[in-house]
Design a protein around this nucleic acid. Structure first.
Lengths: 262, 262
DNA sequence: ACGCACAATATGGTAGTACCAATGAATCCC
DNA sequence: GGGATTCATTGGTACTACCATATTGTGCGT
């Protein structure tokens, strides 16, 4: 098949009703099956307008949709235009976070889910990760612990490090799905863990627990590791329950006036 | 990240660069915090065009984005317009499926992930589901088995029933996250299970195994249930491996997982 | 020849208008 | 009173013009 021909096939006039959707679907299909690769640049809007035989508006709307999906990146100015982009988990996380905002899930459900994932991840990591990786995880856990023992630890940095530890562990499980799901959950809901390290009463215990977990993994002790995982989530449950109690009087104001929006 | 939430600002024209994004963010925020509820209708495009002080194009683009996100549903004609919609898992599944199309994950990784989820789900379901639910699951599993024992079973119906069984089981775990994640995975990747029921050599065994699993759950026998779960995925692994052998000439690279390290 | 300011150009972003298409409601005719 | 017709509302599309911005080229001055 002539690559030029297949490339030009993407930009054919649409006949159906919803022109912008058709164009978006054509472009998406072209990207997904490799006729358009990440980094490549689509023709300019005015050019596509001609090649699709439509107005510029529908081309723009199609580009908007694909941009929102994370498939395109649009730049202004000369040599600008729509560039094919490689998807990353952030798009899935965003979609998931949006969904969970309309379908609020209980804290306990979220903790429970993550706990079960972490258990599996830990077992897989012990079985599959290299000794170097395990040593590195332990070293990072120790660094994390030392950082949290500072008199005034930087919570932003420590939160990021905690996130990194989780991702590192998930990666050691040698199954991208665990890594991605954990990442997606964390991107939208790191607030709970944040609380754990904010409170000085839990901070040290949580950090020490991370260290023990990493050591158990490095020592190839699955049951001990699982025990520490359970302890981590036990602390988390205790912490969020306590925060909920102490902040019981703080009431969120209700927004019920739709008239002010327009 | 921090849009100005002063309520009066929504009346004013946008001054920054991306007007359509601003409008989309405003509307999304209004939907998420309840100022616009599912079923409600937004003003017409021409009306919003005036109220936002912009052209109609940017309003349309904003609506397109929110429609793509699943937050709006647009109808034509009189009494048409943009209606606020309640999100469902399908949007997350779609996003996940799109991501996985650009980051192909190995069959084994997918099976492994689902197996670990199913194990947890099964344990939770045994502990939490009512006897009625367990009896119902068993009844459906028996119906499923009977259907697959027909001389020429309808694979479309049986596939749907298998999906229903999985969702039912996930629901019995009393944690929506498991249900949603399983649903999201199934919506995009039911092809593997389909293969299991296509091959007559595996069909009967897989169906009988579903029945045994359901019975073990109904009998509150967690270890036996886990054993059957393992057997199910063992069959699935064997089946897809066999199909891969028989179609060895058709090679598809499953590992493009060469993501860079940070 | 070099470098910096300035102009030209390409391209997305926005505004505005006009018209088409579909849909539901009001109206009219039998 | 009921069915067909007309009408108004509203999204869908086309076209044009202009603005904002970023890259590229050009020319002037040193």
């Amino acid at each position: 098949m002539n690559p030029d021909q297949s490339f030009k096939d993407v930009f054919l006039p649409v006949q159906g009703g919803r022109a912008s959707e058709d164009i978006a679907l054509k472009l998406e299909a072209a990207i997904l099956d490799g006729r358009l690769n990440p980094g490549e640049r689509l023709p300019s809007e005015r050019e596509m307008q001609v090649q699709f035989g439509t107005g510029r508006g529908v081309v723009r709307e199609a580009i908007q949709v694909l941009k929102q999906k994370g498939l395109l990146e649009v730049r202004k100015g000369a040599k600008g235009g729509a560039y094919v982009r490689r998807l990353n988990v952030a798009n899935v996380s965003e979609s998931l976070a949006l969904f969970l905002k309309q379908h609020p899930v209980g804290r306990e459900q979220l903790i429970e889910f993550r706990e079960s994932m972490d258990q599996t991840i830990t077992l897989l990591a012990i079985a599959r990760a290299t000794p170097d990786e395990k040593a590195h995880l332990l070293a990072e856990a120790l660094r994390f612990e030392a950082l949290l023992r500072e008199p005034k630890p930087d919570l932003a940095i420590s939160g990021e490090l905690d996130r990194q530890l989780n991702i590192m562990l998930a990666r050691m499980a040698r199954n991208s799905l665990f890594e991605w799901v954990m990442q997606a959950l964390q991107l939208g809901f790191s607030s709970h863990d944040h609380a754990l390290y904010e409170d000085p009463r839990y901070r040290d215990r949580a950090a020490a627990n991370w260290r023990d977990t990493a050591r158990a993994i490095a020592d190839n002790e699955p049951l001990r590791a699982l025990s520490y995982i359970g302890r981590h989530y036990g602390l988390l449950r205790q912490c969020v329950a306590q925060m909920q109690d102490s902040a019981a009087d703080q009431e969120m104001p209700l927004f019920s006036d739709t008239s002010r929006l327009f």
